[in-house]
Design a protein around this nucleic acid. Structure first.
Lengths: 202, 202
DNA sequence: GAGCAAAATGAACGGTGTTCATCAATTTCG
DNA sequence: CGAAATTGATGAACACCGTTCATTTTGCTC
């Protein structure tokens, strides 16, 4: 019976993940400190390295939770039998909404880099699939002639485009631009792309 | 006459920028160390802080040079009187080509973050304009009814979308996808979007 | 060349993630 | 049940980071 050991271990991991999540939400990935996390979690500095291999692995777990929450947000927009155009627009809007409401956690998903030479573990790569999964079905309706690999490629491209629009707007790297409404710009973009897909199909 | 002083100062700045550029090209922003740069530039550690306020300012200057080179690469595709569709496709292809050929320097443009609370200086923000400037003219031909602020917004959106596609593909955050050719996927995307713009105009 | 101002130097500082000898808690087994 | 063995928690110490600063060296003025 190693029940108590396992319970304590899981409890510690949970407390560390929660503390890291709170710190990321408050001050972003860049402000994350091992000493702050362990102080918040109520354990010694070294305890972090008994629960996780290093800070990167802890961040990966926080990102997992963020991806799960993002997945739920998208799931709500992906159901129902609406036409593909409005489904894709609803998904883009939900993605933007999630990024706005969970800015720091969302940024951590894409800002985080593993140590040089270390690959992102497969279990975490697989979790990113939720980002494009919901796009496949509406795209299949718009492009019935495509096989699965092509559909997946198209879905990834569409996600990347929408993500790029949201990401570059929420940073502010450009000046001299009219303060246009991001949401209408994003939805207009999806509209235009869907129109293009329909046109090319004919 | 303070000629020799100024010359030495400029020489040191140049050597530091060049050394930082080489280090970034070789191992990326994350591997950049003040001690490595100053060793490569042949000066003492502290000399870096007589030439620049801090590492961030040095990185900004490297990014300036990268933006200038990227601007030249795009300039070559933006000239000529070709139709908007092929101009936009040529620009997207050139952007992808630059990102591929100058991977680390290009990544540094978007990975670099200033210290918390410190804004990117205006002179550097302005340099990012080259990324969307070349898109405005072809877009104006496609959308003659739009005024300048709307055109700039549309240009930024298009750039962000193209950038997103290139950025997410050159990282590898997704698995289980067919290894499709990025260039044809990107050009197909621009094609579809232009078709959509033409359709909506009618 | 003397005197002065400015720049270059590199040891030292405070802060980081990570490790490790030491100690405490838990499990195993006679 | 209690002693031995194993595992977990501890926090001082380590290596390394960007940055600073007293000191030395260099260049300019007169």
């Amino acid at each position: 019976m190693t029940a108590k050991r396992d319970a304590k271990r899981e409890d510690l991991r949970g407390r560390l993940i929660e503390a890291a999540q709170a710190r990321i939400q408050a001050s972003g990935l860049a402000g994350l400190r091992a000493r702050d996390i362990t102080a918040d979690a109520g354990c010694a500095l070294g305890a972090l390295y008994t629960a996780f291999a290093d800070l990167d692995e802890l961040i990966l777990h926080v990102n997992s939770i963020t991806l799960a929450r993002l997945g739920e947000a998208l799931q709500q927009e992906a159901t129902g039998a609406a036409e593909p155009r409005s489904r894709l627009k609803a998904l883009a809007k939900a993605y933007l909404g999630f990024a706005r409401d969970n800015r720091m956690a969302w940024k951590a998903l894409f800002e985080h880099r593993m140590a040089p030479g270390v690959a992102v573990p497969e279990w975490h790569l697989a979790e990113h699939a939720v980002l494009i999964q919901h796009l496949v079905e509406p795209l299949a309706q718009l492009l019935p002639a495509l096989d699965t690999p092509d559909l997946l490629a198209r879905a990834r491209t569409l996600f990347s485009a929408v993500h790029g629009i949201v990401a570059i707007s929420l940073e502010d790297r450009f000046i001299g631009l009219a303060p246009t409404d991001l949401e209408s710009e994003l939805l207009g973009f999806v509209d235009t792309l869907v129109s293009g897909l329909k046109t090319e199909r004919e």
